[in-house]
Amino acid sequence: MEVLMSIVVGILISAAVYLMLSRSLLRIIIGTGLLSHGAHLLILTMGGLKTGAAPLLGENAKVYVDPLPQALILTAIVISFGVTSFFLVLAYRSYQELGTDDMDQLRGNDQYE
């Protein structure tokens, strides 16, 4: 199972990197979204996907899944959500002000000659 998940993570991250290398700002944001999905899935996979009960003591099971990676992912989800929404609004504002979302046109103009 972990092998399959590692490959899925690899695909997610490849797609994310490809999107981040594109010119459109919106694609870059979508890329970061995919990247965080990949990272979260990776944390979960690396914690081990052994079968066991959900981490709720009420289940009275013998084996539980590892609760620690879940806590870490929960924190990461919230933080990446905050950053993504900030980034999205930033893109929206820069499009409003600058009239373009083409990263090539958003080049700095501090030329040294």
């Binding site: 972990e2 092998v3 590692s6 490959i7 993570v9 690899g10 695909i11 997610l12 991250i13 490849s14 797609a15 994310a16 990197v17 490809y18 290398l21 594109s22 990949g38 990776l42 996979t45 690396m46």
Partner: peptide
Amino acid sequence: NLIISLGVGAIVTLIALSAN
């Protein structure tokens, strides 16, 4: 871009597999 992105994905997968 394609090569770079595939490379990054492959590296992540390989490291994940090794770590696991």
